[in-house]
Design a protein around this nucleic acid. Structure first.
Lengths: 216, 216
DNA sequence: TATTGATTGAAACAGTTGTTTGAAACAGAT
DNA sequence: ATCTGTTTCAAACAACTGTTTCAATCAATA
């Protein structure tokens, strides 16, 4: 999003809408606030996007495209070991997801919308989340026995992304649970390293003890 | 919450408000919908609570008190193995957290408000979340080597609760990623079983290979 | 310059929001 | 029955919402 792109009213509206949507959510955001922040007329939203809902969808999709370009997966060769692929995936994923003071409205908006089951969510899942999900499943297939069921594969994938997403969704809670010094030490690299270790350990263990049972 | 408590309009309003607030959030909820669901007059909200905002605060506090009364963790004896404790903890945690038709609005409301750092829910973290967190840390201390650092302990705990919280926060995405048949199979027991297996495997592996390193 | 099409502007629209009003209905005590 | 304080009700309030309208403005082309 170079500064040149902001000279048209349409782009200014998306930029302003993204920040306000990310901060207050869809319902609490008014088109008047958006247009005022974008230095555009009230009618501009309906002129360019039809209605508020479609502006919202367009904003979410724009945010997602932007986010995908920011932190891309490294280029893997044919002989890249799956363990390395998984570590790369986790590091990239947590880099995309982690919020902070320097966080962009694109990230906050996507995260907020993951919990809102509506049209925008469905499109984002189809266009952007599912491809990433399939990449992860491919990595896990190489790390787990061949007869692993699709369901187990999915649950394992959810366990991995769940660990990453936690540091976004529960960030206010994390901030209260550990002291400030330790919180400051939670760098992206450290979190990614821990999650990769934790998950790889679980995978290597279960890969040997197929059909592990819960302690009872 | 016996049916006797719903006699007064005030209690009916809190009950209805809790369900709608938990589902749609504060902004998207109208006092008209609340009063209609509570079979009360429009003026009742302002009569009993002053305004919509104070009704909301009262509802969150009520949900918090209700959740505190739910003694969900089973009674452990001195010789209950830590593995069993961890499995119990995970099952209880995911049962509290999981969103679904059978879930209570009290849980969903607390979960929703957990991500508002500015709200007065910092005390909810202090009164309700931290004690649970300390319980989990105690279990993990028994499962990990004694020289495990506090930071590693915390990261491990976050990995576990992160897996559980995922199914709450990312539920709409999960619904789109797997087909309906598989989604219907994601019972609370199955999810809890998987997360316990995954986490115990990771713990048992790292307990042997202290200071595991990321594959590079 | 005149014309065309795209964009902007201020005002108004119809509907909904949270809130208030004042009278009616109620219950219990004198 | 009368008085008291509490609770309910329908109606209306003022403010705000997303959206529409239509004239004004602008840029480029013939």
């Amino acid at each position: 999003m170079s500064s040149n792109d902001l000279d048209t009213a349409r782009d200014r509206i998306i930029e302003a809408a993204g920040e306000i949507f990310a901060e207050r959510g869809f319902e609490a955001t008014t088109v008047r606030d958006i247009c005022q922040a974008a230095a555009a007329n009230i009618a501009a939203v309906n002129y360019y996007f039809g209605d508020k809902q479609r502006l919202f969808v367009e904003t979410v999709l724009t945010a997602h495209r932007w986010r995908m370009d920011q932190a891309a997966l490294p280029n893997w060769t044919a002989d890249t070991p799956p363990r390395k692929k998984l570590a790369d995936f986790i590091a990239t994923f947590i880099r995309r997801v982690r919020t902070g003071p320097k966080d962009t409205w694109q990230n906050r908006l996507i995260m907020r919308e993951m919990m809102r089951p509506d049209a925008a969510c469905a499109e984002v899942v189809r266009d952007s989340i599912r491809p990433q999900f399939e990449i992860l499943l491919g990595i896990l297939r190489a790390l787990l026995p061949e007869d692993t069921s699709a369901e187990s594969l999915h649950l394992t994938a959810f366990s991995i992304v769940g660990q990453c997403l936690f540091y976004h969704f529960a960030d206010p809670v994390v901030r209260h649970l550990v002291d400030d010094i330790e919180y400051a030490e939670f760098s992206i690299d450290k979190l990614a390293c821990h999650i990769a270790n934790f998950s790889l350990a679980a995978l290597e263990y279960t890969a040997r003890h197929v059909d592990a049972e819960t302690a009872t």
